[in-house]
Simulated assay, not measured.
Amino acid sequence: MKIKIMLPLFAVIAAIALTFVVSSFQKGINEKNPKGSQPTLIDYYFKFDGTDGEETNEMKWTETDAADFNSTLTCTSIRRGCKLKTTKITGTSGVDAHPELVEVDGTAPNISPKTSVASGVTQVKNRVPTY
């Protein structure tokens, strides 16, 4: 008789405890990233060290800083796009970082890096107009 009463009572207590734990966990997630808010994106800056037509090769982009990116110095040579700002990288910033993806307009060797949501590239500087 005691088992018939204790088992349902234990099940109810366990269900209440589980509800409390799940509710507390969900509250912690919502406090860290409230509904509707976007995560903070970090900007990374790169300069192009390749030759015309290699802009889609992420390894040809070297990480730089905001001051260099915003400087008025132009690219050497006739490079079509030589600086970009992105929120998506591979590797570790300051060590071996490269843009995750560089999308371009045009056909090689006359290609220009472009901004896009998929690549995370939010700004390109020193672009030559498309031929």
Rank of each mutant, 00 (worst) to 15 (best):
S93I: 09
F48C: 11
V117H: 01
L73M: 09
E63D: 04
A118Y: 05
G106Q: 08
T40Y: 14
P8Q: 06
N57D: 15
V22N: 07
G120Y: 14
Q38V: 04
V21A: 10
S71T: 15
P34M: 03
F46M: 03
T74S: 13
L101E: 14
G106R: 10
E31W: 05
L9W: 03
V104N: 11
S93R: 10
N110S: 03
R80S: 14
F69Q: 03
L84Y: 03
L84K: 03
D68T: 15
P129R: 03
A14S: 08
E103M: 06
V117S: 08
W61Y: 10
L101M: 13
A15K: 01
V12P: 02
P8F: 05
I78G: 09
L7V: 15
S93N: 07
F25D: 03
T130P: 01
T64G: 11
E54Y: 03
D65I: 04
Y44A: 02
F10S: 13
G106F: 08
K114N: 13
F10L: 14
A17D: 00
M59K: 11
S77R: 06
T86W: 11
F20R: 13
G91D: 01
A15N: 03
T40S: 12
L101K: 08
V102H: 02
T19H: 04
K47P: 00
G106M: 10
Q123G: 03
Y45D: 07
S24R: 14
A67N: 12
A14Y: 06
I3H: 08
A67W: 05
T86E: 06
N110C: 00
T90C: 03
G106P: 05
T122W: 04
T115P: 02
G81T: 12
F69M: 04
F25M: 06
D96S: 10
V128E: 15
V22S: 13
Q38W: 00
Y45W: 13
I3G: 01
G53F: 10
A17I: 09
I16D: 00
N110A: 05
S71L: 13
